[in-house]
């Protein structure tokens, strides 16, 4: 009986271990898939051309393989999103943590979380059908596809990320620092800007970097509302194509498996993967730093 239990214990442990192994296999699979196909891509296209050519036209007869226009499109929409999400998200975090009553916070937090639960295709629809026409009333020359509208909507989508992570960071600041500041006669706002934000800075930086990474990888909003024209520009009023949109565009078309056009999605995907991986890990480092500081 006892031996039977012991055997069963062992088998169960093995099964659970295999479940955990799936996560490692997923990572290995992603790296293998992206890089093995990218290697065949880079046998045709030099890394130098990929990183320095200013045109991206793999689907035309005159082929150019410079990723820069896609990178600029991605950075532009991301920048606009952060410009919206950072001030709003951070202010919400400060307000909920330092000003609002407990009851208000309890009601409002789940409502804000809903913003993060809305599927991105819905935001894309909203950007194209509501935000763009609205912006066109203010800026009459704005084309139907542009970087500004999806950038703003993406910013609204990531507000909850910035606000809830910043809130955690502000919450972790010891009460004694607040008390000291109030004891010196400072107002709440002075305390926030001169004591709490500096004390919580690494947590907030971590939140912002994570939000940047989220925006870089966002696909549907930009695929619907930003256009499909690789465009080396930093003008928010122009149509741009992001790395993610390009990958979608290719998979929507009839590109033969194994061709150089097909391989471009792996090279673009590898670029995206590396970019987000670096950002995420910088963010983890900052996060760890503030946790060590106060816990």
């Amino acid at each position: 009986m006892k031996q039977k239990t012991r055997l069963a214990e062992h088998v169960i442990k093995m099964i659970l271990f295999l479940c955990a192994l799936v996560t490692v296999l997923t990572t290995a699979g992603i790296i293998w898939v992206l890089f093995s196909e990218s290697i065949s891509f880079f046998q045709t296209v030099s890394l130098k051309e990929f990183l320095t050519d200013t045109e991206w036209t793999p689907l035309f007869t005159q082929k150019h393989f410079g990723i820069l226009p896609l990178v600029s499109g991605t950075l532009l929409t991301t920048f606009i999103a952060i410009l919206v999400a950072l001030p709003v998200g951070l202010t919400i975090a400060i307000y909920l943590n330092e000003y609002a009553s407990k009851r208000f916070r309890k009601v409002i937090k789940p409502v804000l979380e809903i913003l993060a639960a809305v599927p991105t295709v819905v935001y894309g629809f909203f950007a194209l059908v509501v935000m763009t026409p609205f912006l066109q009333k203010i800026i009459p020359d704005l084309p139907g596809f542009n970087a500004l509208s999806p950038g703003i909507i993406m910013g609204i989508m990531i507000i909850p990320f910035v606000s809830s992570l910043s809130e955690d960071a502000l919450f972790a600041v010891p009460q004694s620092l607040r008390d000291a500041s109030y004891g010196m006669g400072a107002t709440r706002l002075q305390t926030v800007f001169r004591v709490l934000l500096p004390a919580a800075s690494s947590g907030i930086v971590s939140a912002v970097i994570l939000a940047v990474s989220r925006a870089i990888g966002e696909t549907m909003i930009v695929a619907i509302a930003a256009g499909q024209q690789p465009n080396l520009t930093f003008n928010p009023l122009e149509s741009v194509e992001t790395i993610t949109t390009y990958i979608v565009q290719v998979s929507l078309g009839d590109v033969p498996h194994g061709s150089i056009e097909y391989q471009t999605i792996f090279a673009a995907g590898a670029m995206l993967f590396v970019l987000t991986l670096i950002l995420n890990n910088i963010s983890f480092q900052f996060n760890r730093r503030y946790r060590q500081k106060y816990e």
Partner: peptide, 27 residues
Amino acid sequence: VLEINIANLAGIPSIIYGILGLTIFVR
């Protein structure tokens, strides 16, 4: 290692999972 790996997986853009699935599951 497992912990860092899972944190990273959670941050990978969903479209990359699509590329993985296309290559591994579909093909």
